[in-house]
């Protein structure tokens, strides 16, 4: 009997863990014009892109402005930024985490290259 209970508990744990592992998190609000990154422990996250001269890194001087494309962290640890209002066009972007680490948007399957890095693409028709 003890063995059956143990096996049942293990199966229950695996199912529960599996649900937590592979069931997607719900978005806080339905908004098409926001970028999201789940990184609660990061000290800062910026969006560097063609629309902001990659944070100033391609401008004269080449220093990334620490406030350029700064994302806001909500209470749950989700970093967000509103990108509505950009002119129509194709833009490459990447997340700049903790002031030194570039990562592409894991929730965007479309990618391109910038300066040898794999970055993400977003398009606005108008």
């Amino acid at each position: 009997m003890t063995r059956i209970i143990t096996v049942a508990l293990i199966i229950l744990f695996i199912i529960t863990a599996g649900c937590a592992l592979f069931v997607p998190m719900q978005k806080p609000v339905e908004q098409d014009n926001r970028l999201f990154l789940w990184l609660p422990g990061a000290s800062s996250v910026q969006v560097l892109s063609d629309w902001n001269d990659w944070g100033g890194s391609v401008a004269a001087g080449g220093i990334i402005d620490p406030l350029s494309g700064r994302m806001e962290k909500d209470d749950t640890g989700l970093w967000t930024i509103d990108i509505a209002g950009l002119p129509g066009g194709v833009y490459r972007y990447a997340f700049y985490v903790n002031g030194y680490k570039w990562i592409k948007d894991p929730l965007n399957p479309e990618t391109a290259l910038f300066d040898g890095r794999t970055v993400s693409i977003i398009m606005f028709t108008n």
């Binding site: 863990a17 649900c19 937590a20 592992l21 592979f22 069931v23 997607p24 998190m25 999201f36 789940w38 990184l39 609660p40 948007d105 894991p106 929730l107 965007n108 399957p109 990618t111």
Partner: peptide, 14 residues
């Protein structure tokens, strides 16, 4: 092919 997800358990998959 690519896929990405944030799961309820706070796991980011890429």
């Amino acid at each position: 092919a690519s896929a990405g997800m944030i799961s309820e358990g706070g796991i980011t998959w890429d």
